[in-house]
């Protein structure tokens, strides 16, 4: 997974062609950390079918808010730079995978 932050988000996500999945998380978000290993497995499983990014919102608060993300965990999907879907709140990896399959 690609680590994105305020410096490279535009390049890696907003200017990217095709499907990009961004995992918004932070070190103080326990559900995020619990979810993370399965998100990484998902990225491995679907390698080449979408671009997978990870965004630590700590230190990137303004960026998160600019992406209208104000709650964690959030998994957002972008296509050609536009946000097309988002899963937030109680995020189950099964739901993320289903959404990914729907969009890819």
């Amino acid at each position: 997974m690609i680590e994105v932050n305020k410096n490279n988000f535009e390049e890696e996500v907003l200017k990217a062609d095709g499907l990009v999945m961004v995992d918004f998380w932070s070190p103080s978000c326990e559900p995020c950390k619990e979810l993370m290993p399965s998100v990484h497995q998902l990225a491995e499983k679907y390698k080449g079918q979408a671009k997978f990014c990870s965004l630590d919102t700590a230190g990137n608060r303004r960026l998160s808010i600019s992406q209208k993300v104000l709650g964690l965990p959030t998994i957002a999907f972008y296509r050609d730079g536009d946000k097309i879907a988002e899963i937030t709140g109680e995020v189950a990896i099964e739901d993320v995978e289903a959404k990914l399959n729907e969009l890819k």
């Binding site: 932070s26 103080s28 326990e30 995020c32 608060r61 104000l70 964690l72 709140g89």
Partner: peptide
């Protein structure tokens, strides 16, 4: 939000 620890730092 329903989870303070998740979202407080925003």
């Amino acid at each position: 939000s329903y989870c303070a620890t998740c979202d407080a730092d925003f």
